[in-house]
Design a protein around this nucleic acid. Structure first.
Lengths: 251, 251
DNA sequence: GCATTTTATTGATCCGGATCAATAATTCTG
DNA sequence: CAGAATTATTGATCCGGATCAATAAAATGC
């Protein structure tokens, strides 16, 4: 499995990887000792890049590791009762994939690359071992999972209640934020996923998504040319999305 | 805070509590040593009962502990941008409340008792301390959180895609399952929450929920008299809910 | 126990978004 | 590079569920 992968062997590289893939979520805020970082370094592998359509894992695959997206993007999806694909998430650089598989011991959904994508593999058993003697790492893991729960609660709310335009605006803003955090243009980027994927994730029909893009463009909120979007009115989009993520604002 | 609470002092009582409130989720599957159970026992307190409308915690309260529902029921909710209540979950006996607060250090939503409700309080810092030297307890914590994530993904899917009747049917079946697991009648029980709460949680209008109950009754799926329901056709409800929780079936 | 307030049911109407249908633009594939 | 298959856009129609409105039934307060 891990044979053609490149090991990240030196500290410098790891920190770079951390910056890129937000493994910093896992280690930076802890201010770990050098020897601890080296220990983490020993278990974390950089996988060779996935290409568009490649599986990171399939539904039902045994759960062995978490994955941190370094670059590119991943979609996770499951199948509905009627056998169609139901997208459960888009995972951008800095986000973890696989947190939902810990309980079951196998992946409840499949993960595929939406474009050329590089990920770090974090073998879970090893991570657990290490976390027993690195104070704070365990806590950090729990934090990460808690944050995931919070995010999903948020998503639940807008899927239940928000209008189609609010959902799409919120998604675009999420992408925008991710790019900003990584010091890329928060207003101009490519959508790596198809309209169908977006529709599935947002619980809408493809036609609706397509119409929304057209409408947003007419209203001067953005320019869209196939996969490429340029957000022209972030404030307007925020208004449409509804102040959003209300869960986070009250702490 | 804990002054009027009753400590669970003996093993027998703890095991009873575990049975009741599914702290067995936390400890039983681990087959802990007696001294470990005693250590858990030392930190877990049984709170004195909450009454209808009492807060378990308010939005923004500092996060100190997880709570396991022993009997009764709890609703958690946040506020929408427009200031209305948005129910984020119903928590029945055997379920944990507070998993979404670990990251932030404070509660992103409020929790109130829907009826007379008894909970166990599990101080989180202490739990973390203990879990560092009880192998398996930490793992169990991660499992629990992962399961929560899975459940919410499931919920996301039906909020996005399923019809109003499917949502209500699914909710009723979830209640039914909880009662069955606790050896109560899975077909006859009281809904502790208002129609408004149900509607909010399911992302529907109150009127729709009300109409659905009436329709289900006409179709012979259930009998409903105010808060009391008697499910008459579980199979039919399952069909309506859609095979459901497709996420869990593929492992 | 009566008045007030909250919660639930039922009816009538309206609209957002799904569905059906046709076409256009892209991207595979040989 | 041509033909086939997939993906995206646009239009027309329909329907599930929201909204508005009125009443009924419970819960709550005095």
């Amino acid at each position: 499995m891990a044979s053609p992968d490149t090991r990240i062997v030196d500290l410098k590289k790891l920190q770079l990887a951390c910056e890129e893939c937000s493994l910093h979520e896992l280690c930076l805020p802890l201010e770990l000792q050098h020897e601890d970082i080296e220990e983490l370094d020993r278990i974390i592998h950089k996988r060779r890049p996935l290409h568009r359509g490649d599986y990171l894992f399939r539904m039902g695959d045994p759960f062995r590791a978490l994955f941190a997206v370094r670059s590119g993007s991943i979609k996770t999806y499951t199948n509905t009762d009627e056998g169609e694909e139901q997208v459960t998430g888009f995972h951008l650089p800095g986000e973890l994939v696989g947190l939902d598989a810990i309980t079951e011991g196998c992946h409840p959904c499949a993960a595929r690359a939406l474009e050329t994508t590089s990920v770090c593999e974090i073998p879970f058993e090893r991570l657990e071992e290490i976390s027993t003697h690195i104070p704070g790492l365990q806590r950090q893991l729990l934090r990460l999972m808690s944050r995931e729960i919070l995010t999903e609660q948020d998503t639940m709310i807008w899927l239940g209640k928000k209008s189609a335009e609010a959902r799409l605006a919120a998604l675009l803003l999420r992408f925008s934020d991710n790019y900003r955090r990584r010091h890329f243009s928060p207003t101009e980027f490519n959508l790596s996923m198809s309209r169908t994927d977006i529709a599935s994730y947002l619980g809408l029909a493809v036609e609706t998504v397509s119409r929304l893009f057209t409408r947003f463009q007419h209203e001067g909120l953005l320019e869209v040319e196939r996969k490429h979007v340029r957000l022209r009115d972030l404030e307007g989009l925020r208004r449409i999305a509804g102040v959003e993520s209300c869960l986070h604002n009250h702490c």
